[in-house]
């Protein structure tokens, strides 16, 4: 029996599977998530429903809001980028990590490598976003969405800081964030966000 056609077909099948897989994987990784409209002005942190936020004025220093899903593996890349950028931030930056937590879960649910990494950053406060209400309010529908408000409470940055989904490394968005934190330029930088959806809806983002 001539096995050459079978062999040839096997090669073609394997090659095709690899090629299609790569294309699909690249497409998946390059497809940004949905993003809502974030508030242009942050006047108070009281809405974060945390004990420490009651007496803190929003405009005394720049505030970086990091919305994330504690279980999202893609956000790990965002955290690693943030870890590399953090030493280069001006020291008067307030970082607030908003961790999504399902309503039926207790606070311990947010414990993950991402949460641990974010809380280890200097000046970082963690806020539990039970049920994703805060995320929805700030238009951060995808894990890894960062919002930067300057000392005046004005939104200057909105989006992700990874080049594509779950991919760490330098990217224009991360450099833009660094520039806006340190130099406080005018305008607001809008960047795509790559990550898991924080909020479940009919068209969940993967």
């Amino acid at each position: 029996m001539n096995s050459r056609p079978i062999l040839l077909m096997t090669f073609v099948a394997l090659f095709s599977m690899s090629a299609i897989g790569f294309i699909q994987l690249t497409d998946y990784s390059s497809r940004p998530g949905r993003a809502g409209q974030a508030p242009r002005q942050l006047t108070s942190l009281a809405s974060f429903d945390a004990s420490w936020t009651a007496d803190v004025p929003a405009g005394d220093m720049p505030t970086l809001l990091v919305f994330y899903h504690p279980k999202c593996p893609c956000t790990a890349a965002t955290v690693r980028v943030l870890e590399r950028l953090h030493p280069r931030f001006q020291p008067t930056l307030r970082i607030i990590a908003v961790a999504y937590c399902p309503p039926e879960q207790d606070d311990a649910w947010i414990e993950s490598r991402t949460t641990t990494a974010l809380t280890s950053l200097t000046g970082t406060q963690t806020v539990i976003d039970r049920g994703g209400k805060l995320s929805e309010r700030f238009g951060a529908l995808v894990s890894g969405h960062l919002l930067l408000y300057d000392a005046g409470g004005r939104l200057t940055f909105s989006g992700g800081i990874t080049p594509y989904r779950g991919h760490e490394g330098d990217s224009p968005s991360s450099l833009d964030l660094l520039r806006r934190i340190n130099d406080q330029p005018d305008g607001c930088g809008q960047w795509p966000v790559f990550g898991c959806s924080i909020v479940f809806d009919r068209e969940p983002q993967r």
Binding site: H69, K71, C72, P73, C74, A76, Y100, P102, E104, Q105, G132, S143, G166, C196, S197, I198, V199, F200, P204, Q205, R206
Partner: peptide, 11 residues
Amino acid sequence: YSPLTWIGNHF
């Protein structure tokens, strides 16, 4: 590194 993908509390 990425065993599950999450959508809210679904995975």
